[in-house]
Structure formats: structure tokens, C-alpha cells
């Protein structure tokens, strides 16, 4: 296996923190600005793909079990949030306009954009973001590794 050059490694070290912060921003501000769970999860999975291509030879074990557990946690959290609104209907927004968690009331028109709004939508954004991030990085990890029969 050919080794990765020094330029790629240095650029990967520089890019880790900005890409992580941008992906987290896109997920957490999904109800205020363009983006959301799918786009933010894809950005974080791009970071994992970059790390896999750059530092593949430094891995001793393939860390795919962590991503498998995270994927199941995101999916279960998403379906559970949908079931919690079952008092009126499936996917009912049961936290909005209650002045509690994510419950600041919003009226029609221009406002500066408060983070503490939109009820259950930010929680669903986080769940879908975790699920998409771990599913896409699981696919990239499994496709990138060497086969057991190739080593002999």
C-alpha cells in the first residue's frame, strides 16, 4: 500500500476542527438557517472519509462498532420522539409554544431568530444528524478496509 504524502496529512490536521464546527452548526441551527440533519450529517461524514483516506495505515482496529451503536441510538431516538406526540397524532409537535424547552412562541413576520424555538424540531434534527453521520461513515469505513483474504 502506498503511503500518504506529508502535504495531505498537514492539510487534514488543519481541516479537522473547522469542518467539525461547521457540521455541528448546520445540525444545531437547522430550524433557523438552511441545512438540517441530513446536510450536517453528510458534512460530518465527509470529515470521517477524509480521516480514513489520510490515516488509514495508522489504525490497528476498525472502529465500526461505535458507529453501529450510534446509528441505532439516533434511529430509536427519532422514532421515540415521533411516538411521544401520539396523544393527538403521530409526529405531533408536543413542545411548541409552551415556554418550556425549545418552546418560545414565534409570530408571523421577521424576527432575529431565537435558538430556543420550534419545539421538537431541533431534537429531531439532532437525532437524524447522528443517524446520517454514523450510517454514511459506517459505509465509508467498511468500503475502505482491506479484505481478510488479501493479506496472504
Amino acid at each position: 500500500m502506498n503511503d500518504v504524502s506529508l502535504i495531505v496529512k498537514v492539510v487534514a490536521y488543519i481541516l479537522i476542527v473547522p469542518v467539525f464546527i461547521f457540521g455541528s452548526y448546520v445540525i444545531l441551527h437547522g430550524h433557523l438557517s438552511p441545512g438540517g440533519g441530513f446536510a450536517g450529517g453528510a458534512i460530518l461524514a465527509t470529515l470521517v472519509a477524509m480521516l480514513v483516506i489520510t490515516f488509514r495505515d495508522d489504525f490497528k482496529e476498525n472502529p465500526h462498532e461505535i458507529f453501529s451503536i450510534l446509528e441505532c441510538i439516533g434511529m430509536i431516538f427519532f422514532i421515540l420522539l415521533a411516538f411521544f406526540g401520539l396523544s393527538s397524532s403521530f409526529f405531533h409537535n408536543f413542545l411548541v409554544n409552551l415556554n418550556g424547552l425549545f418552546g418560545k412562541p414565534v409570530h408571523f413576520g421577521v424576527n432575529p431568530g431565537y435558538l430556543n424555538t420550534a419545539g421538537v424540531i431541533p431534537l429531531m434534527n439532532m437525532a437524524v444528524g447522528i443517524e446520517v453521520f454514523s450510517a454514511l461513515s459506517l459505509i465509508v469505513l467498511m468500503l475502505s478496509m482491506r479484505y481478510g483474504g488479501e493479506r496472504k
Binding site: 430550524h31 438552511p34 438540517g36 412562541p105 414565534v106 431568530g113 420550534a118 419545539g119 424540531i121
Partner: peptide, 10 residues
């Protein structure tokens, strides 16, 4: 007003 989110697409 109904969902409290500024981004209509979301």
C-alpha cells in the same frame, strides 16, 4: 406560528 421554526423547509 404553528411550528415556531423560521426555516419553512425544515
Amino acid at each position: 406560528a404553528q411550528t415556531g421554526s423560521n426555516n419553512i423547509v425544515t
